[in-house]
Nucleic acid binder design. Structure first.
Lengths: 189, 189
DNA sequence: ATTAACTGCAACACGAATGACGCACATAGC
DNA sequence: GCTATGTGCGTCATTCGTGTTGCAGTTAAT
């Protein structure tokens, strides 16, 4: 690795990554030219900071993944009661995934650094879910892998649904749907 | 519109559309060349049948949407009891979406023919859900739009999950998850 | 203040994908 | 069997995205 970047160069990198997220979210096949324009830099600068398109994509994914992992840890998923942890993690993840929906939503994301970060996130998730199951929050026979997929899918839908609702209420909606579905509830009058 | 195609030409169209689905599902940026090869025709033939890439994509989407709409109608969603209809529709949709996951899963799908078919499908879905709600299958205060999105998302996940399971059991999983979630159920011992 | 790093700009090379030909051959439909 | 239609093949032009280079001017870091 080369030596540290100068301050303005680091600022360029940040601007480019943020622009890439915006532009690629709107059109996954967008040009480096378009990204550069959105970032307010010349296309050559993009090439200077990132060897090729692939490298840019990887850097984008890695940046977003790091933020996602941080957001999850921030929610202390293994010290709070499962239901509380579920709400907190969900709200935090909604925030990060909302801001980096392309970088985190793309299949290329998993295959990047052989998906080390994703494996960690998935493990964290299953950890929490396992605890939720043992403590009686989840159905004892629930398939946790299926549960995880449903959970991710609900988060994805909640993001599209974001009609001005804040992450907190969206998280509540996700958690409630995950736990109880949309059916009539047995104990209801 | 020109006159009717000859039988072999229509066969070419079908082969190309099926190949496009296969190839594009694996790589959305795939070349017309690759599609032609997978279809067993020359690239020029693809150009003869479809003016440009865009036209091919639209034809692909339209074909898949028509099949989806047919599959839904085939399940008679408004004559059977809601729970039965839900299972039948889900199983049929899983079959079609499994076979045309690219054509139906892409965002371009909705924007195609101004999404007339999609509007119909969504309406059919909401119709069924409204009945399910009135007849006590769904929670009386469930947000049907959110419910629809969750339903679509569950179907999408079920397709990724298809570890050799048949559409029937996947449909059962989707319906159960939609109705009751994965939480511990109140009446359980 | 000096130096090393960074940027924008212009220009270029390169490859890939697209799309349009014409031609010879086959095949469906009557 | 005749004819219109369809196909494969080879070829060509064009466009577009990518990546590189050199240079002049600017800015951060010491």
């Amino acid at each position: 690795m080369g030596r540290a970047l100068r301050a303005d160069a680091e600022r360029s990198v940040r601007l480019i990554l943020e622009a890439a997220e915006r532009v690629l979210a709107a059109d996954p096949g967008a040009t480096l030219e378009q990204i550069a324009e959105a970032a307010g830099v010349a296309r050559t600068t993009v090439h200077r900071r990132f060897a090729n398109r692939q490298a840019l994509l990887e850097a984008l994914t890695e940046s977003a993944e790091r933020q996602l992992a941080e957001a999850i840890e921030e929610a202390r998923p293994d010290t709070a009661p499962p239901l509380v942890a579920l709400h907190r993690v969900t709200a935090n993840v909604l925030r990060v995934k909302g801001a980096w929906s392309f970088a985190l939503g793309h299949p290329a994301a998993q295959a990047c650094t052989t998906g080390a970060v994703w494996a960690g996130v998935n493990a964290r998730c299953l950890e929490l879910f396992g605890r939720a199951q043992r403590e009686g929050l989840f159905h004892p026979e629930a398939d946790l892998e299926w549960t995880r997929r449903v959970y991710y899918a609900l988060i994805g839908e909640a993001l599209n649904d974001a009609r001005g609702r804040d992450p907190e209420s969206l998280a509540a909606l996700v958690a409630d749907t995950l736990l109880h579905g949309v059916g009539q509830r047995p104990g209801a009058p």
